[in-house]
Design a protein around this nucleic acid. Structure first.
Lengths: 194, 194
DNA sequence: ACAAGCCTAGACCGATCTGTCTTCCCGATG
DNA sequence: CATCGGGAAGACAGATCGGTCTAGGCTTGT
């Protein structure tokens, strides 16, 4: 019986591979980490990796898709705590701030991965999907708040979101989220007023 | 006579290596590009590379330092066209917009390189120097404009600056610079008024 | 009991990696 | 002319890369 629930006594080979890939790819970069290190860390035969994923590139895609899903769930769960549209929109940066304080935070996985990817690769496509989700989320929240130019505000907030992720990683400064939140508040208030 | 001016009939081996490294590292990423491809593109012996730079890591550092110097000169030259403090501060995003429209623009080199670098490496140090220069530039421009909390505004503008670079690369959208400029204008006007 | 499937362990492949070394050429200087 | 040094060309080394394959074990259903 192949483990109907999320937790099994022993994680499957696929789960162990994804966990090892997530740790190594995220910490050191996709190009830096070789297949051998992943299978060794996962305690999985190399043949199993290629049976389950087909290639390193598809493993990278699965790693990015898992990061995408986890981020989406974490943000959507965090937003349920807020009630007013303004609080919900700014709550995205609160959720970001929580991510920044995690001990192994190392920036946006899609951003780093796409920096090493060739154009048109599955990695770039996964990054594009992630960015479209972020953009859509900001646009929807702006619309719910009654902002006239919701797309325009969403573009501005997306810049702050990306910039905060970059600063948190490169400056080792988790407070970038609160800086972004304050800037987002000013831009939002100006957008609803004008 | 070893070329006293910037232009020589035949660029030196060092110049050809830096030009090839700049093109390949910036387009494809530091880890992706091997030494062999650089020396082949530069038309330089591999031994010359190691005589001149010592290692690939130091070549990467020289590549990033050259990018840093070029960006600094380009921005500072662009800012001379503006007179008022407000125009000069927002002019940073105009200069950024010019970079975004260059045909081979591929994002911030320091950001991409540091995503593949190990902690404490020369690459990370070069990225940190670059970020400190950007931060200082925004801080100085904010002070010249009489902003009370110059450091706070500089942090916000730095977020927009980074976010615009990310969006221009990943969304293939050079207009991110004008979006960032508009947001920066609102944040600046709010900072001088309050 | 037995066969089918999934998994492990690891040898193996050709290519490529960073880095070293040797050999030779060519131009400038004494 | 002779000497000397920088650079070109490329063989070479040892490691690692992504990926394939074989051989054998362990569990499961029939």
């Amino acid at each position: 019986m192949p483990s109907k629930a999320t937790t099994a006594v022993t994680p499957s080979a696929r789960e162990r591979l994804l966990a090892a890939a997530d740790d190594l790819f995220y910490r050191e970069g996709v190009q830096t980490v070789g297949i051998d290190r992943i299978v060794q860390k996962a305690g999985v035969a190399k043949a199993s990796l290629y049976n389950l994923f087909g290639s390193k590139e598809e493993l990278v895609q699965a790693y990015l898709d898992a990061r995408h899903a986890a981020t989406r769930e974490q943000v959507e769960r965090a937003l349920t705590r807020f009630r007013t549209p303004r609080e919900r929109l700014l709550g995205v940066f609160d959720a970001q701030g929580q991510l920044f304080t995690e001990p192994d935070f190392n920036g946006c996985a899609h951003m780093s991965a796409s920096a090493e990817a060739r154009p048109g690769s599955p990695t770039e496509c996964a990054a594009e999907r992630f960015r479209q989700w972020v953009r859509m989320m900001f646009t929807d929240l702006a619309k719910e708040a009654g902002v006239a130019d919701a797309e325009g505000l969403a573009r501005q907030l997306h810049l702050l979101y990306d910039g905060a992720g970059v600063s948190a990683r490169m400056d080792h400064d988790p407070s970038a989220a609160t800086t972004a939140r304050a800037a987002a508040a000013m831009l939002f208030d100006a957008a609803v007023k004008g």
